[in-house]
């Protein structure tokens, strides 16, 4: 057994370790709890300061206010729609290409792999992509949220490395039974790939739900195509602490009445924009840890 000196060294180490971990935990969680408390606190009271972990004067007014603010309902719908549609289409297409590329006997395998691999190493840059989107008449359409990023090489390679790990005999016996490649994909590959597909779905969904830049760049002129993160970004830009008066004067949201303060509005929108993902991710933890490991090993 260990000597006494190493024991006391170990205890000291533990004290520091747990203290450190608890402070990391507090630093991570406190901002969210603080915003949550503010979102449930009466706006006029929040201005007085001193709200930390619990609302002083509980109210639902902030939430009522943002949901009568028309743009936000539209924004919420669009965010949900782009997340659901983008995730379904993205996962499905990545899985399909991944299956094709996992077939060692496929004659165009190398060439097609190459086309996808190259995209990992370069991109056209903001302006050329912007011009393309404009030329394709995708600006001010909902499709600009779905189409450009639909096929993603990284997702394809993660799924492929998972398929490579599956026993080949299943595919072969299906082939003997007369199944064609399409049927093998739908009946055998897709059901077996559930864990990796869950991971990829989570990644795509988070990306879709969290993106605001495409709305900013392509759809900022269409109010009915706005998204939750973009609305939040606009409010943030209006209330950034330390921002100059010029920033403050940037177009605000006139529909918001003075009954609630920008800070309270921002807090409640932040919660609405954050909650759906926070509810889902702890349950998928096992899957994404696995998926990440796969991805890193492959690349």
């Amino acid at each position: 057994m260990a000597a006494k000196s190493t024991n006391s060294e170990s205890v000291l180490f533990d004290i520091f370790l747990y203290a450190f971990m608890i402070s990391v935990g507090i630093v991570t969680v406190y901002p969210f709890l603080n915003v949550l408390a503010i979102s449930f606190n009466q706006a006029m009271d929040t201005v007085r300061g001193g709200i930390y972990l619990w609302p002083r004067i509980f109210t639902l007014d902030n939430y009522k206010e943002i949901f009568i603010y028309n743009n936000l309902i539209v924004a919420f719908k669009n965010s949900v729609l782009r997340t659901v549609l983008g995730t379904l289409l993205g996962v499905f297409s990545a899985a399909m290409v991944a299956y094709v590329l996992s077939r060692k006997d496929f004659i165009a395998r190398k060439q097609i792999s190459f086309v996808f691999v190259l995209t990992l190493y370069f991109s056209g840059g903001i302006i050329p992509v912007y011009m393309l989107i404009r030329d394709l008449h995708l600006m001010n359409t909902f499709w600009v949220y779905i189409l450009p990023g639909l096929v993603n090489a990284w997702n394809i390679f993660v799924i492929r490395s998972y398929i490579d790990g599956l026993p080949i005999s299943l595919q072969e016996s299906a082939k003997i039974d007369g199944a064609n490649d399409l049927a093998i994909f739908f009946r055998i590959i897709l059901p077996l790939c559930k864990p990796v597909l869950a991971t990829i779905a989570l990644f795509i969904a988070v990306g879709q739900w969290n993106s605001w830049f495409d709305t900013f760049l392509y759809n900022s002129n269409s109010d009915d195509l706005t998204t939750l993160q973009y609305e939040l970004m606009k409010i943030l830009a209006n209330t950034t602490a330390g921002a100059s008066s010029a920033d403050m004067a940037r177009s605000g949201n006139p529909e918001l009445t003075t009954r609630v303060s920008p800070e309270s509005i921002r807090a409640s929108i932040t919660i609405v924009a954050t909650l759906p993902i926070l509810v889902v991710y702890p349950f998928l933890q096992k899957y994404f840890v696995q998926g990440l490991t796969l991805g890193a090993v492959k690349s």
């Binding site: 969680v29 969290n210 993106s211 605001w212 926070l278």
Partner: peptide, 9 residues
């Protein structure tokens, strides 16, 4: 947790 939250937030 913070990884899953957008940069806007």
């Amino acid at each position: 947790l913070p990884h899953f939250v957008s940069w806007v937030v």
